[in-house]
């Protein structure tokens, strides 16, 4: 089929030139994020913080998608587990008025093992399957966890969510919380960057390109998938932990299928084939979301049409355009 050859040609072209455009992209983004608060007004800080948190969420998702070649439609479960863990620890402390910075940091970190444990349980079943089965099962498990949180009123306050969350006094101002988020996300991204370029990162790529052959090299495919699923879940949990104090509340929608779609969309928009793709995707998605929802209640329709257009006309994501343009320029082509 001609479309198939077209696509594989573009994939090959992406691999042909080994210069990773993620490096310059990440550097530029880092500078932009540092300078962002220069723009006056609080709204830009809110948008910026959201871009960073969801960007980390999408980066963690891309560990499964871009690097391992599977697509999880239930990744929000781990984001949500992280968000609830931190929220449930913080809420009584905030209400009592004695929230210290160290306690706050510990509450953020506590989200990681909880999400990791959740990912371990869900992943144990999901990694038995690949492709559409993996996608369906991850979505189904995500919804199951959503229903548990939704129905368990005595523990999670169900549909009401957990309200009245707050960063500690030291981090309370929007600009400080923004920079705090920036530092956490930057550290996590650096860690992810390191992992994706390690031998383990390449083991993931082997799985992505040819799982059957990978087994014949002596790799326990399921074990690698499970470890990666837990890693991705842990980073998603960290992102989720940052959410509650930022949004002042958490609710079950953070675990739902729509939230699971968010990192999928971001990876597609930015380019799942690039480490920095999901971050770029978060800027576009979150930016659009923040401004479009001011004018219309039909945000799903808007983003749906954007996705449709991307899938049809730009399947490699925005970075593939930049990448192609840079390479053409370097080769001296017009």
């Amino acid at each position: 089929m001609s479309q198939k050859s077209l696509l594989s040609a573009s994939l090959l072209a992406a691999a042909r030139d080994r210069l990773d455009i993620s490096i310059p992209v990440l550097l530029v983004l880092a500078v932009l994020f540092v300078l962002l608060p220069l723009i006056p007004g609080e709204f830009i800080l809110v948008v910026g913080t959201e871009i960073l948190i969801l960007g980390l969420f999408a980066l963690s998702f891309n560990l499964i998608h871009g690097f391992m070649g599977q697509i999880s439609f239930g990744h929000a479960a781990f984001f949500g587990l992280g968000a609830y863990t931190t929220a449930l620890i913080l809420q009584p402390l905030t209400a009592a008025g004695g929230l210290g910075t160290i306690t706050f940091l510990l509450a953020i970190l506590a989200a990681v093992p909880v999400s990791a444990l959740g990912a371990l349980v869900v992943g144990y079943f999901c990694v038995r399957l690949t492709g559409i089965y993996f996608a369906m099962l991850s979505m189904a498990f995500g919804e199951l966890i959503f229903y548990v949180v939704f129905s368990w009123y005595s523990f999670t306050k169900g549909d009401d969510g957990i309200q009245g969350l707050m960063p500690p006094p030291l981090l309370k101002s929007p600009v400080v919380y923004y920079y705090f988020t920036f530092v956490v996300v930057a550290l996590a991204a650096a860690l992810l960057w390191r992992i994706t370029r390690s031998p383990f990162g390449y083991t993931l790529r082997l799985l992505r390109d040819n799982p059957a052959r990978t087994a014949f090299l002596g790799i326990d495919v399921r074990r690698v998938m499970l470890v990666n699923f837990v890693l991705a879940g842990s980073f998603a949990g960290l992102a989720g932990a940052l959410w509650g104090p930022f949004a002042r509340s958490v609710s079950p929608t953070l675990l739902g299928w729509a939230q699971s779609g968010v990192p999928v969309f971001m990876s597609l928009i930015g380019g799942a084939g690039y480490f920095a793709g999901p971050l770029v995707g978060s800027i576009v998605y979150t930016g659009l979301n923040s401004y479009v929802t001011r004018f219309t209640i039909y945000w799903p329709l808007t983003i749906g049409l954007v996705i449709l257009a991307m899938v049809l006309f730009l399947p490699g994501g925005l970075l593939s355009v930049v990448d192609g343009w840079l390479k053409a320029k370097r080769r001296g082509e017009p």
């Binding site: 479309q3 697509i71 799903p300 049409l305």
Partner: peptide
């Protein structure tokens, strides 16, 4: 086309 793209297209249809 690749599986993720197929899934995404129909996922977008849900929203639309």
């Amino acid at each position: 086309r690749e599986l993720p793209e197929q899934l995404l297209l129909t996922f977008a249809l849900i929203l639309i």
